[in-house]
């Protein structure tokens, strides 16, 4: 997919995020928006998947280790055709198949239930190992928060993946710099993130995670990397695309009210217009 199309789609994914969280009156917009370009690239370009056959045996797998950003995953899945975009506002509602955190039994396209931080990466490692054991060529992607990597289990998983040289695994860290209690370096700094993954025998790529040229190049490089898993440290802007959410820890886990929702959608409409104009 061309960059412009990806940008337009990412903007649609962002609208879906804001709409879902507004509909839920709760949820996590900040980290969903920061990773929207990565969600979009994975589901619209990178991964070998089939929305009509979500359980296709040799599909690439994605595990949202930072499960609280389910709105981002759901919006990407809906826009990709796994289920109707119109259902996004049922997020977190009683009886909805869009649970607050990803549930593989409820939602088409969700490869692993997740949300308790630090656990998703281990499951992704298990999937990558399964491919190796069976000589299959599917790849496994997992997205972590930069706050999430404070969890010790992340490094247990990284040690195993590095030790086993799982080159079919890509770990993406959404480095938006903010966690609930504030800046990650003020709460309990995980920096330097790249050096840590390097020490665990990962091939590490630092990118601007809101730039499709850099995202594309990184995933290409990951695919070409043999004998090592890859970690993509994606520098992003929390709340990206919505003026009043950008760079604000306060929008980690808060839903916009009706007035704020209107402003957010206007922001995104404006971006769509600009992108349309450039076409």
């Amino acid at each position: 997919m061309e960059n412009l199309e990806l940008q337009k789609m990412a903007n649609e994914v962002r609208k879906g995020i804001v709409t879902a969280v507004h509909g839920a009156k709760a949820g996590h917009p900040g980290g969903s928006l920061s990773a929207a370009d990565i969600f979009t690239y994975l589901y619209f370009d990178e991964m070998n998947i089939d929305p009509k056959n979500p359980k296709m045996e040799n599909r690439d797998r994605f595990v949202l280790s930072k499960g609280h950003t389910a709105p981002g995953l759901y919006s990407a899945l809906a826009n990709r055709g796994y289920f109707p975009v119109e259902d996004l506002p049922t997020l977190r509602h009683l009886g909805s198949y869009l649970q607050g955190h990803p549930c593989m039994q409820e939602t088409p396209g969700v490869d692993m239930s997740s949300g308790s931080l630090g656990q998703g990466i281990s499951a992704a490692v298990g999937m990558a190992l399964a491919a190796k054991l069976d000589n299959k060529d599917f790849r496994v992607y997992t997205l972590l928060g930069d706050g999430e990597i404070q969890e010790g289990q992340v490094w247990e998983a990284a040690m195993f993946a590095g030790h086993r040289a799982l080159d079919n695994l890509v770990v993406i860290v959404d480095n938006n710099g903010l966690q609930i209690d504030g800046k990650i370096e003020d709460v309990c700094s995980p920096y330097p993130i790249d050096k840590k993954f390097e020490a665990f025998n990962f091939h590490v790529i630092n990118i601007n995670g809101n730039d499709f040229d850099e995202i594309r190049a990184a995933f290409k490089e990951a695919k070409e990397t043999k004998g090592q898993p890859t970690a993509i440290i994606a520098k992003t802007v929390k709340g990206k695309g919505v003026s009043f959410m950008e760079g604000s820890a306060g929008w980690h886990g808060k839903a916009p009210n009706d007035e704020e929702y209107a402003i957010a959608m206007a922001d995104l409409d404006k971006i769509a217009e600009e992108l349309g104009g450039a076409n």
Binding site: Q119, G126, A130, Q153, E156, A157, M159
Partner: peptide, 27 residues
Amino acid sequence: DRHIDCGIAECNMTGIAAGLSTCGKIP
């Protein structure tokens, strides 16, 4: 080939087993 030592990391072992099972293994 079907025995996987995860090192002293039980929580990760549990997650790895979960991932393996989604791909048809009986861990």
